[in-house]
Amino acid sequence: MGGKCPHRSVKKRRYSHKSFRRSKFLVKGDDAVYDELQKGEEERKPLPVDEDLPGMGQYYCFHCDRYFANVSIRDEHFKTKRHRKRVKIMMGPAPHTQLDADLAAGMGKPDNGPKLMSM
C-alpha cells in the first residue's frame, strides 16, 4: 500500500507522505482480507450503515478494503489497475501466517488433543 504517485504532467500535485502514513494502519491486512473473501457470498453479513463512511458504507470493495460514494464510482474502481492487481494476489495462494512460519521452522501441526465434547 504505497503512497499515491502524482502524475508527471501536473506540477503542483505532490506526493503526500502524511496521508500515506495515516492510512497505513487503517487498511486491513492481507490475511484478513483473504479470510473475508474465502467466506463466500452467503456467509457475509450485509454491510452495516455507517454515516461516517462514504456512501453510508454501502459500496465496499472487499479486495482493496475501500468504501465508495456510489455504485458507479465503485464500478469505476473495479476497472483500475490497482484493483485488478489486488484481485490477482487474492486469487493466489493464502497469505503467510504464523502457522506457516511454525511449519517452516520444523514444527509439527498444533496438537489440540481429542475432541472432548461434540458441539
Partner: peptide
C-alpha cells in the same frame, strides 16, 4: 527455503516439536 527445496521438508523428526494445547 522450504518452498524452494533448499531445506529438508518432509521428515519424521519434525513431528516432535509442536504446540501442544492439551
Amino acid at each position: 527455503r522450504r518452498l524452494h527445496g533448499k531445506d529438508m521438508t518432509q521428515d519424521s523428526t519434525f513431528e516432535f516439536e509442536r504446540k501442544r494445547n492439551r
